[in-house]
Amino acid sequence: MKNDFEDKMADIMLGEAVTALLDEDVAISWAALTDRLRSAIEIETDEDRIRAGLRAIEEVRREMHVRNGEKTEGKRVAALTEQKLH
């Protein structure tokens, strides 16, 4: 039950961060999103929201690593394919 609450709170924090960036007409990026979440938890006083913000930052970092891994793997496959064709 606690994990569901924490997951929902993390999603809410992510949504708030994205909405704030869009309202400010800032380009959405991994860095901008994590910076916005960090700023939010620095001024936050509610412990549940602080934990949710930290969890959201970890989710963003995990997603960054997954996406970067996919790009790296794709480049390796393309390089190998290119080598085999020549």
Rank of each mutant, 00 (worst) to 15 (best):
I50T: 08
L37R: 00
D35I: 01
R51D: 12
V26T: 08
D4E: 14
H65G: 01
L85V: 09
K84Q: 09
D25R: 13
M64Y: 12
A17W: 02
A78F: 02
R51N: 11
A78K: 14
L80Q: 10
V18H: 02
K75I: 11
E70Y: 13
M9I: 08
H86D: 12
E82G: 02
R76C: 05
W30F: 11
E59H: 09
E58Q: 13
I41K: 14
G53Q: 06
D7C: 05
T19S: 08
W30A: 12
V77Y: 06
M1L: 06
I41W: 10
R36H: 04
G53V: 06
I43R: 10
A40Y: 07
M13T: 05
R36F: 01
I28M: 14
V66F: 08
R55S: 11
A56N: 07
D46M: 02
E6M: 15
K2G: 04
D11K: 07
V18S: 02
L85A: 12
D35R: 09
H65Y: 11
H86R: 15
I28Y: 12
E6Q: 15
H86M: 09
M64A: 05
M13F: 00
N68G: 08
R51K: 14
E73A: 15
A10R: 05
K8E: 15
E47W: 02
R36C: 11
R38N: 15
I43V: 15
D23I: 03
E58C: 08
H86G: 13
N3F: 05
M1H: 11
N3W: 02
A32D: 01
V66I: 15
K75H: 04
E63F: 00
A20P: 04
K75P: 01
R61T: 06
D35V: 06
D7M: 03
R62C: 07
L80W: 03
R61G: 00
I28H: 04
V18Y: 03
L80N: 10
H65S: 09
R67C: 02
G69H: 03
L33I: 09
T81P: 06
M13W: 06
E73N: 08
K8D: 10
L21M: 08
L21S: 03
Q83R: 14
L22F: 08
V26D: 00
K75W: 03
E63Q: 11
K75A: 12
D7S: 10
W30M: 04
A31V: 10
I12F: 10
V60D: 00
E16M: 14
G53F: 02
V77F: 10
G53D: 07
L54F: 00
A79E: 11
A32Y: 01
R67D: 04
D7I: 05
I41G: 03
V26E: 13
T34H: 08
E59Y: 12
E47D: 10
